[in-house]
């Protein structure tokens, strides 16, 4: 069925207002888009790792979630969902439940790339029928912008501060979507917010309605941690995909497919320039750092093109 924004926006919201995420936060946009991909008649159970999203959407006695929801800890959204999905299978088998449920787990990059990595890897390898969504804002924002393995190289964070001897984070970011694809799960994809949300919506729909484990890596900007004017969220996302810093692709049963190729690939500066966390890179003496970043982006982009069978 072709994507139609109007139809999609007509669906009842499954996340309520009144949550306490920051103004302009990307995470609830990711959540809304995910949940919109559910058929309205399907029930869902949501798991969230401890994160900004969790503590802000579920502050006792107020929950923003209209579906059943459970949070247990930071590092175990994958395992917690494994249990919920296991319960569903058992209860269906025993004839105690008739309804169809879908299972969606959310984690930030801390709960996904780092502390929750083992639990997620286990859940994906066991191929539970669930979708794990990482809303990746590239640092531990909930505890105050500490670096994660999703933090881009040279980003200024509170544990990789820029100083006389430091230009920010030393290491490049981990390629989590590729790692998840390497689990040989039926569906893995990377996306972010673009235009009418078609790309993310379609990926969300595939992830939810593919039998077995699915993983979605969603770049969800954090105005506070990235230090940009909060209204510029969509501009930043566009720059991320047009510079090929954040490529959008999917891996369906092991087959890599590029989802978006910019008409004109922009220099990495276009992504970096509006963000305070990269401000130091624009000092004249740091020109070589940007050049180095550009090389890394190009290398990864070309590698991806090859995987996707695209012309380099």
């Amino acid at each position: 069925m072709a994507y139609n924004l109007k139809e999609q926006m007509n669906k009842p919201e499954r996340l309520s207002g009144g949550h306490r995420m920051c103004a302009g936060c990307g995470a609830p946009i990711a959540v809304r888009t995910m949940l919109r991909a559910l058929k309205p008649e399907d029930k869902a159970t949501i798991v969230s790792a401890t994160s900004c999203l969790e503590v802000s959407t579920f502050l006792y006695p107020y929950t923003a979630w209209k579906d059943s929801f459970i949070h247990t800890a930071f590092e175990n959204a994958g395992a917690t969902m494994s249990g919920v999905e296991g319960a569903y299978n058992a209860l269906r088998r025993k004839g105690k439940l008739d309804e169809t449920y879908k299972f969606i787990a959310f984690g930030g990059d801390g709960g996904t790339y780092d502390i929750g990595f083992q639990s997620l890897s286990g859940a994906m390898e066991r191929n539970h029928d669930m979708v794990y969504v990482c809303y990746d804002n590239g640092a531990y924002m909930n505890t105050g912008i500490q670096r994660s393995s999703a933090t881009p190289k040279y980003a200024d964070t509170t544990t990789t501060p820029v100083g006389t001897e430091s230009s920010g984070k030393i290491q490049p970011r981990k390629d989590m979507a590729a790692i998840m694809a390497a689990h040989n799960i039926p569906y893995a994809a990377q996306t972010t917010f673009m235009g009418n949300m078609k790309d993310m919506h379609e990926k969300a729909e595939k992830a939810i309605y593919t039998k077995g484990a699915a993983y979605l890596n969603v770049m969800a900007p954090c105005p506070r941690g990235w230090r940009y004017d909060e209204s510029k969220l969509m501009e930043i996302c566009k720059a991320a995909v047009d510079t090929c810093y954040w490529p959008c692709f999917e891996v369906i049963n092991g087959e890599w497919k590029l989802s978006y190729r910019p008409k004109e690939k922009l220099p990495i500066e276009e992504f970096l320039k509006s963000q305070g966390r990269f401000k130091h890179l624009f000092k004249p003496e740091n020109k070589h750092l940007i050049e180095e970043m550009q090389k890394e982006v190009d290398r990864r982009w070309n590698e991806l093109l090859k995987k996707c069978g695209e012309e380099v």
Binding site: S16, G18, R20, F58, Y62, T63, W65
Partner: peptide
Amino acid sequence: IVYGGGTSEAVNT
């Protein structure tokens, strides 16, 4: 436990 969904609709942000 919070019973029923979407109780945050009562919160004025």
